[in-house]
Amino acid sequence: MAEAPGAPEECPGTGSAQAGRAAACQGCPNQGLCAAGAAGPDPAEAAELRARLRAVRHTVLVLSGKGGVGKSTFSALLAHGLAADETKQVALLDIDLCGPSIPKIMGLEGEQVHQSGSGWSPVYVEENLGVMSVGFLLSSPDDAVIWRGPKKNGLIKQFLRDVDWGEVDYLIVDTPPGTSDEHLSIVQYLSASRIDGAVIVTTPQEVSLQDVRKEINFCRKVKLPIIGVVENMSGFVCPKCKNESQIFPPTTGGAEKMCQNLSVSLLGKVPLDPQIGKSCDSGQSFLAEAPESPATLSYRKIIQRIQEYCEQHHLQEEKIM
């Protein structure tokens, strides 16, 4: 989507279906151009996107209004967990363009994307787990992506259209915090295929929940189904004395109360475990490194519930069709 130069503040975007037709377009010098479809969604492009995404069976977005709550950690573990079944092909797409954490968490730092005849090749962690991130396109860890919205949207579209994902059972999309360009664009572009739903990650404090409620409202506005909420960093057990401390105290009842109030399902709570951060820093799967830890057990249960949701969702869709 591009904003036309001199566009009104409420410009719906030249790539929007509302281009040239929205109330704000009245009086814009480009209104005629937009209304004529010159700048609207390109039907050829939409068809191309659809063709690419036809080979994707399930799509799960990982969202949160709040930053640093564990979206990338969860996305990475969800991908690892799903790829444990060798018959399933899993793709992990990182659309956090200004703060791509996935390459480091997946142990792929310094990897580059290769160009092939059929597009960009994702970087593979395992044979059945491919990853794509803007991190693979940067030449140095100091490189910053200092882009405004339209350029970010362009790259997200490219990630969907130009990456040769192949046949994919699960596409996991890790997002940046917020409810802005990246989020609107990914939902818009993926509407060419199906999105099973969104997993929303939060921490227990109200300061985090207040942003997450906004994200839930965002999902409702764009008609994105919510698979459920994951509460991360929920309690810390001291490795020495085994007493539990609430470092991020659930002063308003935590995710549980919020889920009740908003009628969203709570997929589970994951305790703070110092090993999780260490595993992320060293690019290892925490599930494999600490298979017996309470956090791993909790992650596994959550992953299983997501899997069940997706299967169910798929069955329902087939029935409708």
């Binding site: 989507m1 904003e3 566009a7 503040e9 409420e10 410009c11 975007g13 209004g65 405004r148 919205g149 339209p150 409810t179 802005s180 360009d181 989020h183 609107l184 207040q210 409620r213 906004k214 994200e215 839930i216 409202n217 965002f218 506005k221 764009v222």
Partner: peptide, 15 residues
Amino acid sequence: RPDDAVVWRGPKKNA
């Protein structure tokens, strides 16, 4: 309302 989401793209945020 405190839970309203600000679903804005760049240009509106900039303004």
